[in-house]
Simulated assay, not measured.
Amino acid sequence: MIMRKFCLAAAVAMMAIGTANAAPATGDAIKAAIGGNSVQGNMDSSGPYAEFYQADGVIKGKDYAGKWTIEGDTMCFEYDGTPKDCWSVEISGDQVKWLKDGKSGGSGTIVPGNPNNF
Results as ranks from 00 to 15, higher is better:
82 T>C: 02
14 M>P: 00
53 Y>D: 04
33 A>E: 05
116 N>L: 13
66 G>L: 08
65 A>R: 11
86 C>P: 03
5 K>P: 01
76 C>Y: 11
74 T>F: 02
12 V>Y: 00
2 I>V: 14
1 M>D: 15
20 A>P: 11
96 V>I: 15
36 G>M: 05
57 G>L: 03
82 T>I: 00
68 W>I: 07
114 N>V: 10
60 K>T: 06
72 G>F: 12
13 A>T: 04
58 V>A: 13
14 M>W: 11
113 G>Y: 06
28 D>V: 00
1 M>E: 14
102 G>I: 02
102 G>C: 05
31 K>D: 07
57 G>P: 11
87 W>R: 14
69 T>M: 12
105 G>N: 08
43 M>E: 04
76 C>L: 13
66 G>E: 09
10 A>K: 06
115 P>F: 00
65 A>V: 10
13 A>V: 09
79 Y>F: 15
53 Y>G: 04
91 I>S: 02
6 F>Y: 02
82 T>F: 14
101 D>N: 15
85 D>L: 07
77 F>M: 13
47 G>S: 07
59 I>D: 06
56 D>V: 10
90 E>Q: 13
42 N>Y: 10
15 M>L: 15
118 F>P: 02
19 T>C: 14
60 K>E: 11
116 N>H: 12
52 F>V: 07
29 A>N: 13
107 S>W: 09
51 E>P: 04
12 V>A: 13
90 E>R: 10
103 K>I: 01
78 E>T: 15
45 S>G: 04
55 A>H: 04
38 S>F: 03
96 V>A: 08
68 W>R: 06
21 N>H: 06
101 D>M: 10
115 P>G: 04
10 A>W: 11
104 S>Q: 12
111 V>A: 02
111 V>N: 03
57 G>T: 05
56 D>M: 10
61 G>Q: 09
112 P>L: 01
107 S>E: 08
75 M>R: 10
62 K>Q: 15
96 V>H: 05
31 K>Y: 03
7 C>D: 12
49 Y>R: 01
31 K>I: 01
33 A>V: 05
75 M>G: 07
64 Y>D: 08
114 N>C: 05
9 A>S: 13
